[in-house]
Design a binder for these strands. Structure first.
Lengths: 157, 157
DNA sequence: TATGAATGACAAGTCACTTGTCATATGGGG
DNA sequence: CCCCATATGACAAGTGACTTGTCATTCATA
């Protein structure tokens, strides 16, 4: 205990924690939403629409690190399943706005509710302030990884 | 500021942070190790061998959440590339131990060194204690997700 | 009004896995 | 000592979540 830990080792521990937690979360998510095809990418699209309102497919794609074409596929599936509809876009005739149907809105809010309820039941010793501090560190770390100056050092050597 | 944040919201923030950070890390990793085929699964296998010594394929598989067959494929590739060799297993004639070659050892330690060096260069405001605290929270969260009692609540309803 | 970028649709390919099957080995109970 | 459930390696096929490429249409702008 109390041994001095070098900075890069501390960062590594966070990174490792992120990795294993992510895999754990994926497994849990699969269990939570059952075989329901609304996990993963679809959930993300619905969430974006809920939070940021109607958008075109390319707009949705720009907000996340996946290709425009893939978002298109997800949206097409959601259209097929009646969770979203296309609305006339005053700013673009061809590229219509994707908009949640009431069914879509109900689906995504129900998923979020279910997730929150489950998270509330976790047996966690960490208190709220510690959780928030951890979230803050993650956010900062993410920002640091995006820093163009740092990114430049990656390709050196 | 200072507004009370409910527990489940705090947890959600950590979870969201983990998700986006993971994706960011994946992108960075790809850049760091270039097109080198030693990222991802292979890196993990080499790391396990470095940390825990010679093991059989099934033993390696039990340590991570992927199928035995997939580990087998990864190990076969590493064998082909001369990063590991098979050694006689006193405890099992058929299932030989997988062991790092000096080349394999050099490869994985070089990767880890490179990663550490890069992490050291990050422009991070968080200090070491905060990083360690965050890592601790992640670990605890992961443990909580594994809790069988909690897992049982997932399938109720 | 010509030109290049954005968009939707579609196709094919890739990556990191999983599931299934089979033959061979092993280890523990009868 | 033999039998059988289980473990292992090898191989094959399938899957989910993406990417890349292409094309025709539509838009923005010089």
């Amino acid at each position: 205990m109390g041994r001095r830990v070098p900075r890069e080792v501390a960062v590594t521990r966070v990174v490792d924690g992120v990795r294993s937690l992510f895999h754990e979360l994926k497994a849990v998510a699969q269990e939570v939403h059952g075989g329901s095809p609304f996990a993963g990418g679809r959930r993300g699209v619905l969430l974006n629409l809920l939070e940021d309102g109607d958008q075109t497919v390319p707009e949705l794609a720009r907000r996340r690190p996946v290709s425009r074409q893939h978002i298109q596929v997800l949206v097409n599936e959601l259209l097929r399943d009646g969770l979203v509809v296309r609305k006339v876009n005053p700013a673009h005739r061809r590229s219509r706005l994707v908009s949640l149907t009431s069914d879509g809105r109900r689906t995504i809010t129900a998923m979020l509710e279910r997730e929150k309820k489950l998270l509330r039941g976790l047996h966690l010793e960490a208190e709220v302030p510690q959780l928030l501090a951890a979230a803050e560190v993650l956010k900062e770390l993410r920002a640091a990884l995006r820093d163009p100056e740092w990114r430049a050092t990656l390709t050196e050597t």
